[in-house]
Nucleic acid binder design. Sequence first.
DNA 1: TTTCTATATATGACTAGTATTATATAATAC
DNA 2: GTATTATATAATACTAGTCATATATAGAAA
Lengths: 185, 185
Amino acid sequence: MSLEYAILGFLHYHPYSGYDLKKAFDASIRHFWPADQSQIYRTLGRLTEQGLAEMEVVEQTERPDRKVYHITRAGLEVLSHWLRSTMPPQETRSAALIQVFFAGQLSDEEILAKFEEATQSMRAVLEVYQQVPQEIEEYVTAVGSPREEFFWMLTLELGIHSVQTQIDWMESVMQRIRNKEHPSK
Amino acid sequence: MSLEYAILGFLHYHPYSGYDLKKAFDASIRHFWPADQSQIYRTLGRLTEQGLAEMEVVEQTERPDRKVYHITRAGLEVLSHWLRSTMPPQETRSAALIQVFFAGQLSDEEILAKFEEATQSMRAVLEVYQQVPQEIEEYVTAVGSPREEFFWMLTLELGIHSVQTQIDWMESVMQRIRNKEHPSK
DNA sequence: TTTCTATATATGACTAGTATTATATAATAC
DNA sequence: GTATTATATAATACTAGTCATATATAGAAA
């Protein structure tokens, strides 16, 4: 389960609470692995059961107590082993492409409007991606490793290229439809 | 649920059994929506319950009887409505990028080997994609609509571009690491 | 004064998708 | 003669992830 490894990866940098982890995830890996709050807490529980992480209660007077987790030696080994294992194959699911696959029964005008709308939301995604470096900066200074930062930014780079590829493809499709270079039936 | 619409889309072309659908999915939309056999049968059951499809038993002497499903008027409406609705946002999950995100703790040699291996498996995916037109041809002749075929091929086109984008990115990363253009710590 | 936001953790109910196994028949390959 | 492949359907068990909601406190904004 990938979320386990992502959590171990962060705990390798620094001990965090579930709340901290949710914020770290949202600022850094959300663009390729969104994580639900409730799932983070449940996974932390499982990691603790498995002896890969350990929990320490940090009492606070003005806020609810924090449960801060740190990685164990066993956890470090599991993380290291996974990082050295073969890269998992990419997930391919795209509900949008199901719509495209069956789009032949729509009119050209409907298809163009659909692609136009989708192109615009892809551009909005690009803009969100461009803000990741700012959001991640807090962790850049905390971790203080330019090497780590280099790999963090590589994931963003692929995200941007991928979205751009989709935009280019959609524009090419729209152009072909506008130029009537496709079969009408 | 996307699989429901994908099944309705195929039933719109022609009545199919669960077994037929599994083959059709594997030949055509597998590259962006793989479908499990057991899930296809369960979804067919649900579509029938909802009145979106109807089942007919076709007796066979030498093989187990076939349960052939056809789309109902209600099913056509649901499909048409969904096809005209906004394109669902793309799924972003990539376990591979979690590995890249935390790759800083590996040696350059380990990272290069990892990327080399991943590039090769991406190239293998490209080759599989190049065989989709042959696998899909049976359905091209059966459906007999060049317009439908055009949109089918568009989904493949994006698949190929996306994989190529990943390969290009991985090669660029490898080059930067080989040229020591990245921080060593 | 109420509402919103932030801090902090947790459970219950649900959905989609995967993996395994079962049943049954017939042809083909080794 | 045995194993595999193809045709055909289906149940069971499981995992990962989502959604909604609950509890508790405090500061800031409206």
